[in-house]
């Protein structure tokens, strides 16, 4: 038993130290920097609340934040609605093709954000496939797709939807589909069986999926930069700007802290909403069997 503890820490120790040192510590440090001051690209340690005062009182920052929150909510909701039937079908009827069907939904994710946005721009933009096809065949182009918030939303769904499918699938793997037969025998229609059996027993999958889509969408900057047009900037774009030409790192840190705190808050709310862990589809040991 004592040996087990020793082996456990020998094996997990290096990774734990690595993550504490290079992930958690830097994240903590931006909290510190957010109370500092920047002058000509240098950070000075005069403690003050100015950065937060600017963020709270300048209406444009608040607007950008609200816009990002709205965007993240819409993108998470649409992804949830689209991912459910897909994940359900793959898990229940996928059979021996389960792994390949699932891999096909997540492989494009690995080509990276910038190349996926590049591909999306060729479909949605003013000279993209959809609008060129419409004008060629004598229809009016859809302006909503050209450099707009709608285009950004479609791009973000394109980027993060695979996470949602994966999260719901992992939850459904432990779901006993026999329960649906029981519901049917007892007279429940499929829709009612879904709402009263499948959905509540797999809410952990939905919740984790929502968080995995919401957090990166809230902070996104690349998609809106290339698909959103001149008025499509989101909070992430303004944050990125502080590290570009203006060099106001302290203000940027404060914006980062705001994003991080909201992420934690969302995580906490969603975690609380799951309720009883054992009845929510979470597998503690992570086993698929």
């Amino acid at each position: 038993m004592k040996n087990n503890r020793l082996f456990f820490w020998v094996l997990t120790g290096p990774g734990t130290a690595f993550l504490l040192l290079f992930l958690i510590l830097p994240l903590m440090s931006i909290v510190v920097f957010s109370f500092w001051r920047t002058e000509s690209y240098h950070l000075y340690a005069d403690w003050n609340l100015d950065n937060y005062r600017v963020l709270a009182t300048n209406p444009s920052y608040v607007t950008f934040l609200l816009r990002s929150l709205f965007m993240a909510s819409v993108v998470s909701f649409v992804s949830l609605v689209v991912a459910w039937p897909v994940a359900f079908f793959i898990t229940r009827y996928g059979g021996q093709f389960k792994i390949i069907l699932l891999l096909l939904t997540s492989t494009p994710f690995l080509t990276g954000e910038i190349l996926r946005v590049t591909a999306m721009q060729q479909i949605l933009g003013p000279i993209g496939l959809i609008n060129m096809a419409l004008t060629t065949f004598g229809f009016d182009p859809v302006t909503a797709l050209m450099y707009s918030k709608t285009a950004t939303a479609i791009g973000l769904i394109y980027l993060w939807l695979p996470f949602m499918v994966l999260a719901i699938h992992l939850s459904l793997l432990n779901f006993d589909f026999e329960l649906l037969q029981v519901a049917k025998v007892n007279g429940a229609r499929p829709l009612r069986a879904f709402w009263e059996v499948t959905w509540p027993l797999n809410r952990a999958g939905s919740a984790i999926g929502v968080v995995l889509v919401f957090i990166p969408t809230l902070a996104s900057s690349i998609t809106s930069k290339f698909l959103g047009g001149p008025n499509g900037a989101l909070f992430g774009n303004i944050l990125a700007h502080q590290f570009g030409s203006t060099g106001t790192w302290a203000l940027g840190s404060a914006m980062g802290v705001v994003l991080f705190v909201i992420s934690l808050l969302v995580l906490y709310i969603v975690w609380k909403s799951i309720g009883d862990l054992n009845r929510s589809g979470i597998t503690i040991k992570g086993g698929a069997e």
């Binding site: 994240l27 931006i30 995995l212 992430g236 840190s253 980062g256 994003l259 992420s263």
Partner: peptide
Amino acid sequence: FIAHILIGIS
């Protein structure tokens, strides 16, 4: 659960 941009800037 941490946005890439935060990992980058921090």
